[in-house]
Nucleic acid binder design. Structure first.
Lengths: 345, 345
DNA sequence: GTTAGCACTCAACAGAGAGGAGTGCTAACA
DNA sequence: TGTTAGCACTCCTCTCTGTTGAGTGCTAAC
């Protein structure tokens, strides 16, 4: 059995009307609201066909039809029109994002908030792994007896400082010498590089301060290790938007959903990694079982052409896919641009 | 009309039973469950009295009694026994908190999580204002043309760095001179002090670099301004515990409650500042109107004898006050101790 | 002052009936 | 052969009704 043009029109009507009203759609409703030029009876026949094909279903005998996962899937893949964002929507986004924002975490957080506001859905953004930044140079500054301030500059321009325990009898000159050796040897290398290749070389140059070197290496490692808060941090906004959906009129459902949202690890699982373009996960396709009634639209944003994080929205399967997809798409591009622009050095 | 011992016993029974079951408590129930040695009829008479006194009420004519705010208040103030935490509970807390935790924010966050877990309520902790730290000294390090790294050491030992725009034609020596002036003049002063008293002096010493000084002051100010994330940050955990309460079977109530929880400013308002001891706010006593059906138990924790932040739990008015109060009390002390211990310098 | 007895109230529940939305089927029609 | 009108049928939803049971207040007896 094939989907002809008329079936397409009817299915599109069903999905769109159900998205708008959250009520099962009857044949008469379609005939009235959508000008298809055919009678309710004909529509009924077609609907019976599509029910057999597994695209729609009846909640009960005397109800209208609602789409099932496969129906949404077909709608998203084949029937849906892909509207551009309106000028107004774009300008809102641009207004919000062009405010100079210093911190990368703040950019992400703002993006997440904006996305949930504009879609009235729940937004998820996973922050980029800063990682992969290489060592550029280090400085030591006096702190107090037995301790120094170690300032590390990374290749991506990030500056970090840390208090370092040193022996009581280490002079400023010795510290400077250590810094010099580090700066000469490991500039442009990541910490793993150092561990693998350069350790021996560094040791041989500074045999006298070997224990101090060990210490400094240890500390550098902690600097280059992602601090917990930067490691793929999850931003989730608009969770309460879900409560506006009639699908979540039941507190039990609300609880199980919000419980997922509270656990970062499970939220991360929601966003399927895609390398390019938009990913749409509908209902049962989802790998988190509490979200069997939800759909997820996700994408990957990039820094200098390299995918570094994910962004997406989540809503009931009955969501406005067209709008949500346009939003996520635009925000992904906007974020990619924003993050690539702000890199310096 | 006075509360005699028998009324006390009956009210205590009503409150305790209602806390446990969330069902209106009838005279027969009390007579059966609590061995008061009087008949249901007598209990009914006493209950009628107490209803007149505004301590309890009937949801409808043929229902048992439930406490109203004033009833809870009387219970908390006069009737409640104050149990100590069990050895087991204490050991759980101690086990969790004695794991060495480096970051103060992490201490707070752990505390909040623990508190909500142990009470099955929603916990709120407001992190201390680090503020009030004074300037100790500053250093400049090279960054790239036109920019330098400004490293600031505060009196409390905190080290912070920031990228500073300087003119292209500013030499390292000039920067050093500026640093020297700052280090001599404003050591031990807060930024407001500087603004008020020392500005003139600094200007006169460095007339030549006046514009640069302005810039440096600007930057110092931002360093000494609390970064957004540290400014009385709100930690809220176990919001979903509320959904377990039969009081929140209605999604509308859930939404309005969670909406309050999402706004830090409103959450802060929930915790009434107290200088000493525990504060119990019951139902309508609360200043956030969405929480008229909730009670809040809060306290203030200290660093070196000075109150710096608040901690508390929030639950339905029908909460286990005794347990919650014991928990908050213990956690407050534990936090105070933990934070005072870890200060150095 | 306390208690047993009793009439009364009212929420909660279940069942019955009406109304209505929507279907599938059949037969007629183009 | 595809389309449509008509009609019987299904089943949800709402309302009404009666029943049940928990719990009360009142009265009178102890």
């Amino acid at each position: 059995m094939q989907m002809d043009e008329r079936k397409n029109k009817i299915l599109r009507a069903i999905v769109q009307d159900y998205i708008a009203t959250a009520e099962p759609v009857g044949s008469r409703t379609i005939a009235k609201k959508f000008d298809l030029g055919i009678s309710p009876a004909t529509i009924r026949n077609e609907m019976a066909d599509m029910e057999e094909m597994g695209l729609i279903e009846q909640p009960h005998t005397s109800a209208g039809r609602i789409p099932v996962d496969a129906g949404y899937r077909y709608y998203v893949d084949c029937l849906m029109e892909h509207p551009k964002l309106s000028i107004k929507e774009k300008s809102v986004i641009e207004q919000e994002t062009t405010k100079r924002i210093a911190e990368i975490q703040e950019v992400i957080s703002k993006t997440s908030k904006l996305l949930s506001q504009l879609t009235s859905l729940t937004s998820i953004v996973i922050s980029p792994n800063r990682g992969k930044s290489a060592f550029n140079r280090m400085h030591f500054l006096p702190y107090q007896p037995g301790q120094a301030i170690m300032v590390v500059v990374k290749d991506n321009g990030v500056v970090e400082n840390q208090i370092v325990d040193i022996g009581d009898n280490v002079t400023a000159e010795e510290l400077q010498r250590i810094a010099d050796v580090f700066n000469n040897k490991i500039k442009g290398h990541s910490m793993t590089d150092v561990r693998h290749d350069l350790l021996h070389e560094i040791y041989s140059e500074l045999t006298r301060q070997r224990s101090l070197i060990d210490h400094a290496l240890e500390l550098l490692t902690t600097v280059f290790e992602e601090p917990e808060e930067d490691k793929n941090k999850v931003y989730l906004d608009g969770a309460l938007n879900m409560l506006n959906q009639p699908e979540f009129r039941d507190v039990e459902k609300v609880r199980s959903l919000l419980q997922v949202f509270e656990e970062d690890e499970r939220v991360k699982k929601i966003l399927v990694p895609v390398t390019d373009g938009l990913n749409v996960t509908i209902g049962g396709e989802n790998n988190v079982k509490e979200l069997q009634n939800c759909s997820v639209i996700s994408a990957t944003y990039q820094i200098d052409g390299e995918p570094v994080g994910s962004i997406g929205v989540i809503g009931p399967t009955r969501m406005d896919y067209a709008k949500a997809m346009a939003m996520v798409d635009f925000m992904t591009k906007s974020l990619t641009e924003l993050l690539s622009k702000r890199r310096r050095i």
